[in-house]
Amino acid sequence: MTSDRKKSPMSTPGEWAVELHGVTRRYGRGRTAVHALRGIDLTLPPGTFTAVMGPSGSGKSTFLQCAAGLDRPTAGTVRLGGTEITGMKENKLTALRRTRLGFVFQAFNLLPSLTVEQNVALPTRLAGHRPDRRRTAEVLAQVGLADKARRRPGQLSGGQQQRVAIARALVTRPDVVFADEPTGALDTTTAAEILALLRHAVDTERATVVMVTHDPTAASWADRVLFLADGELTTHLDRPTPDQIATRMQTLAAHRADVKAAA
């Protein structure tokens, strides 16, 4: 697996993988209400890799949950692959997540009683379809685990388990893969291998990846890095280096500290 980081093809306006318009998320009411997101407007083309960063409490996790249909915004609209999911009934939303979205989490979230092959095929089974063994074998080969199909997760290293999770996320050829701190539990070398796999999926399969991370090195694999602060998108960097990302994060943290001190 190479770590080729060539720029992904960009779509023309109007062809978006992810659209958020005026998205807000408020928890509670009145003076004690917490405004996790404050009017997010965002469009992401297919075939791109986007990283989302921000200080602790900036709204990163809420952003990902609302964008992926795991949480409903208080106001605004979310569209994935051209389909509006904001008011979608839960059963239809669940079906959409199983067939058109992929998820990669820090904790892997594999079922220990199933084989690697069965874990990868799980989204297809849950959607009520017969697994395509050829497709399952294809994505396992892509992540370098063609010879581990009959193993169980407990027989694999952490990095191998995350590779299984990536294969599971890609098996249905989803509109978007949402990744939440996918390298947070991995060492530096293994993390780079996982990020190379996500980058490869974008560059070769035109997958769309949206990744929340706190790691500037991880974020530097993306085409664009978005920065959240206090529930708002404040700025972005295109194809930045880890040092550029770290500097921007320090600036955001310092600004936030100044605002709190003045309050």
Rank of each mutant, 00 (worst) to 15 (best):
D215Q: 09
P112T: 14
S61R: 08
Q155S: 15
P55L: 10
G22R: 06
F103H: 00
V210Y: 00
P46D: 10
S56E: 07
P13C: 11
K92V: 09
G159W: 04
P242K: 07
A51T: 07
G231Q: 02
G128Q: 13
A36G: 04
A246G: 12
M1S: 15
T83K: 11
K92L: 10
E90S: 14
S56R: 09
R256F: 08
F103L: 00
T208M: 01
S56C: 12
D71A: 10
Q160T: 06
L156Y: 05
S220N: 10
I85W: 00
L126F: 13
A222M: 11
K148I: 14
T235M: 14
R26F: 08
L20D: 01
A127V: 03
R133N: 10
T2L: 07
L93W: 09
I85P: 00
T234Q: 12
K60E: 08
L44F: 06
G30I: 07
K60S: 03
T213F: 02
I40D: 00
S56M: 12
A121I: 06
A257H: 13
L93H: 07
A36E: 02
R25S: 15
L195T: 02
H255P: 06
L156N: 03
Q65V: 05
P9M: 13
A51P: 04
A127H: 10
D203A: 15
D243T: 15
G69Q: 01
R168D: 00
L186A: 09
M53G: 04
V164T: 03
H236A: 15
D223A: 12
R125M: 12
R125L: 15
A67V: 04
A95G: 14
S56P: 04
T190D: 12
F105V: 04
S220R: 04
A229R: 11
A107R: 15
Q160G: 08
L170T: 01
T247L: 10
G87L: 13
V34P: 03
A127Y: 05
A36L: 05
T213K: 11
P216R: 07
I40M: 03
R97L: 10
R134N: 11
E205A: 09
R152A: 15
A261M: 12
F49L: 11
A141E: 03
G59C: 07
F49P: 00
M249P: 11
D175E: 07
T62R: 03
L145I: 02
W16I: 14
W16N: 11
I245C: 14
A67W: 00
M88W: 10
V34T: 13
G231A: 06
Q161E: 08
A196T: 11
A51I: 06
A51H: 03
A253T: 15
L186S: 05
T247S: 09
D132R: 03
A207V: 01
R29S: 14
A17C: 14
D230A: 12
V225P: 00
V259Q: 15
P240I: 09
L111C: 15
H35N: 14
